[in-house]
Each structure stands twice: as structure tokens, then as C-alpha cells.
Design a protein around this nucleic acid. Structure first.
Lengths: 153, 153
DNA sequence: CTTATTGCAAAGTGTTTGCATCTTA
DNA sequence: TAAGATGCAAACACTTTGCAATAAG
């Protein structure tokens, strides 16, 4: 059992929830994905792999994975939520291209500082943040390759 | 005609769109609000004031106001969008209390710097950002008044 | 007088819920 | 074998769309 499965198993045990094949399958699938996903794409994905799983179970399991911090929810546009696995991945934020809808990642340690000072200044206990930059990624403008950017989803 | 109405009128003229009483009424109502709102609350609000206006027209007008930057859209939770007027208000970001759902505002000039350096580093033309801190606002923890915070919506 | 805009209701989209059936502990 | 979990479909909440009636330019 890999560390992620172990964390989830322990979480389920601690909450007296059952370790079902469906729950473990969702976890496995999510951690095999390299990019962002949404409920629909995950369901399609699993159906294609002959899993017998329902939309309701995926929603249910995602809720649990969010609760034990193995998953992060994002809301980049105004529609459907997107998710990404979050175990042992470096903290990062997102840049969304309004022309092509691609999502890129970047890291900047200064955000953590802002979070700390803002929290203590306003006496807030900040647990996490969401920072998105919106604009356009110059691929169209300059016909450049996007190899220099880390694209996700 | 106040500056905001002027901007909207010019925008409509420039796009060859009609200046209808409904559109101007929505603008007026939004700029009389002091806090965040959603489509439903605005509709209720206007119905209560005897305006004859439909939900569809509100959605339509909001789209136009977003386009001419007189309005900002936010997505704090996973459900309905929230909006706030954006003419001549200082750039600010939001802190959302996960216990009581209150939204507070804060300003930090360093965010603008991060936006600038990130944009030029990754060759992105960043037009705007959205930064939300999530946590809890200590009101429950310490039974404090929230007077020291600027609450919005 | 032409055509964009409106109000209404129906359709769409993503998510949640109710319930009978199934399965874990 | 009892209580939780599943799959299905219906319900939900928010948003968008189609269309006949209306009104701006």
C-alpha cells in the first residue's frame, strides 16, 4: 500500500467509514492523473477502464479526499469545479489563459509571507489560500511554444 | 448623469447597444449597494422597489457591466457567484471565514509586485487576479467584535 | 419601421438527495 | 446481520436559451 492509500485508509478508519473498493479506486485513479480533472472527466475515465462506479460515489469520495487533504478543489471559471491531487506536491498557484483556457502553475514564496502577515494583522487564522492570475499566455500573440511553461489540465 | 452612468452609456453607444431603462436601473441599484450581492438578492431587491425587471435582464446587464469593468465577479465558495461594483474602489482582495461565511477585505501592495514579476517571467499578459484567504475570523474563538475588520457581504 | 431587448418559461449544467439494493465490518 | 455505501434517477440551484411581445433609435 502506498503512502497515499495508507493516509486514506487511516482517515477512513479514524472516522469509522468503510474502506470500499470504489473509494480506493477513485483515489488510485486520481493519483495516476497528471493534470487537473473534473467530476465528469474522472467518471468517463473510470468507465472507460471498466470500473463500475457511479457519479454519486465519485462526489462522495471527492468530499472525503478533500477532508483529509489528499485533494484540492479549484474554481477557475464560473462553471464546474476542477480538482488536483495534493499529497507531496509543492505549493503553487495558477495562471489561467482567458484565450485558450489553459491552466499553468507557478510558485512564489512571497505569497506565503503575505498570508502570514495578513493573518496576524487581521487576527485571522488562515488555513489556505487561492491565488489565480488571469490573462493571456502569448502563445497566439507570438506563436511560441509553451514548453517553458508548466501546463496543467 | 454621474461618472458611472456616463461610462456605461458610452460603452453602450460604442457597442451600438441600446440604452434601456432596465440596464440603467440595474447599474443604479448595484452602485447603491455597499456590499457584495448575487443575482437573486439583486432581483429581490429590485422587485421590492417595484422595478419591473426579469432575472434574464439582470444576467444580461451584469455581463455588460463586467465587460466594461464597472463590475467584478467573485466565486468564493463552490456555489453562486457574487459581484461587487468596481469603479474607483481601491484594489483589494478577500478573506473568507469558513465558520461564519463572512467576507472581509484587505489590501497588500506586494500582490501587485508578484503579479508583475510573474507575468514577465512567464511571458503572460496578466489582466487581473483573484486572491482569497480562507480561515476563521476569531470572532467565535475570542468573542471579539469585528469592528476592526472591514466586512463586505 | 427595423431590429435589439425584454419577460417568461423551458432547457441546460453541475451537484445533491432519496431510496431500494448491496456489502463491509 | 446491522448500518453504512452504492447506483440510479429524480430533485435542486444557478444560469442560459428560445420566442413572442415590446420599445429604442
Amino acid at each position: 500500500m502506498n503512502p497515499v492509500e495508507e493516509i486514506f485508509s487511516e482517515y477512513l478508519a479514524a472516522k469509522a467509514l468503510r474502506k470500499t473498493p470504489e473509494r480506493m479506486a477513485v483515489l488510485k485513479e486520481i493519483y495516476e492523473l497528471t493534470s487537473h480533472f473534473n467530476v465528469d472527466s474522472l467518471l468517463m475515465d473510470m468507465k472507460k477502464k471498466e470500473y463500475r462506479i457511479s457519479r454519486a460515489t465519485i462526489y462522495n469520495t471527492i468530499e472525503l479526499l478533500l477532508d483529509c487533504s489528499l485533494l484540492k478543489r479549484h474554481q477557475f471559471g464560473k462553471n464546474m469545479a476542477q480538482f488536483e491531487k495534493s499529497y507531496e506536491f509543492k505549493q503553487h498557484d495558477h495562471m489561467i489563459c482567458l484565450d485558450c483556457d489553459k491552466v499553468f502553475e507557478f510558485c512564489d514564496p512571497r505569497i506565503q509571507h503575505i498570508q502570514n502577515t495578513t493573518g496576524s494583522m487581521l487576527n485571522f487564522d488562515i488555513t489556505h489560500h487561492s491565488l489565480n492570475f488571469y490573462g493571456n499566455c502569448s502563445l497566439l500573440r507570438e506563436k511560441k511554444s509553451c514548453e517553458h511553461l508548466v501546463q496543467k489540465g
